[in-house]
């Protein structure tokens, strides 16, 4: 397995990033990612993954393009208003990079259909805009054992959560009956902040998808990596200064001398009906 000449030229700048850059690019080409939601978060996430050379994407969205989407959803153009998002997005992404395989699901999926789509993917990415969908994908991530990378934005707030089968789940944190009043329709949304959040998510996805199993297993646990003094060489391979922050919830903050995401480990609720002790089948506690 190797890159074609065309791929070598296309990805040449990425291939300069460290001794294992070719292996990392090849791992990315082997990866299949499910992106649920092609709005303000999903457009930049899908664009970056496709540009960078992901092998395959499953794109899911049941909505059509609206005029008010355009300030932040850059895969769509003015004359796309009224057209199905997933189909338009896939067409734009194919124009940009014809190599990745794109599967388009222009609908809201029931559990069975979403599980079928999730099972063949390496990673699930939640870029959706509503709580029932977030809870559905969280539950399916837990059932299928797939890692879940998620972003959430509204108004001037931006949050991320990265969960896997060893961590707490989203339902530990939120009440399934939560009546979400804080959505983009009611609160508005900062276009640059939603793009920044999506690109933080995309960067984490690329770190994860390009790492070898050994690199992931041997990475210093998130939050425990020593800071590398400015000017000194990174003592570990490019991109692996610490592990992916699974089990953490990130919150964007701009205060003092810090602009970026603060990450907090999310504690598990032992009584969670999705991932807690009470959800385990009898005999498996």
């Amino acid at each position: 397995m190797n890159l074609s000449d065309n791929e070598f030229i296309r990805y040449s700048r990425s291939l300069m990033l460290g001794d294992d850059a070719l292996e990392r690019q090849l791992r990315l080409r082997q990866a299949r990612v499910l992106v649920l939601g092609l709005g303000g978060l999903g457009c930049p996430v899908a664009s970056t993954l496709v540009s960078a050379g992901v092998g395959a994407l499953t794109l899911i969205d049941g909505d059509v393009v609206e005029l008010s989407n355009l300030p932040r959803q850059q895969l769509y153009q003015t004359n796309d208003v009224g057209k199905p998002k997933a189909e338009v997005a896939a067409a734009r992404l194919r124009q940009h990079n014809p190599h990745p395989q794109l599967q388009v699901l222009q609908c809201r999926l029931n559990d069975e259909a979403l599980r079928e789509a999730a099972e063949v993917c390496d990673v699930l990415v939640d870029c959706s805009d509503n709580l029932p969908t977030r809870l559905q994908l969280n539950r399916l991530a837990r059932e299928t054992g797939k890692p879940l990378f998620a972003g959430a934005v509204s108004g001037a707030s931006a949050q991320l959560y990265l969960l896997n089968r060893h961590s707490a789940c989203y339902q530990c944190l939120v009440d399934p009956d939560w009546q979400v009043l804080q959505n983009c329709r009611s609160m508005g949304v900062d276009p640059a902040l939603v793009t920044l959040t999506a690109q933080q998510l995309a960067w984490l996805l690329l770190q994860y998808l390009q790492a070898s199993a050994d690199q992931i297993a041997q990475a210093v646990p998130f939050g425990q990596a020593n800071q590398i003094p400015f000017g000194q060489a990174n003592p570990v391979p490019f991109g692996h200064a610490s592990s992916i922050p699974f089990g953490h919830y990130g919150r964007f903050a701009a205060s003092g001398n810090h602009i970026g995401f603060h990450w907090y480990p999310l504690q598990q609720d032992p009584g969670c009906t999705c991932c807690g002790v009470s959800s385990a089948p009898e005999g498996e506690v």
Partner: peptide, 18 residues
């Protein structure tokens, strides 16, 4: 509020149930 709030204690995000 009884829903939709996160509470972090000493850098640990704690579910409401705890």
């Amino acid at each position: 509020p009884t829903q939709g709030v996160a509470l972090v204690l000493n850098r640990q995000l704690l579910p409401r149930a705890l």
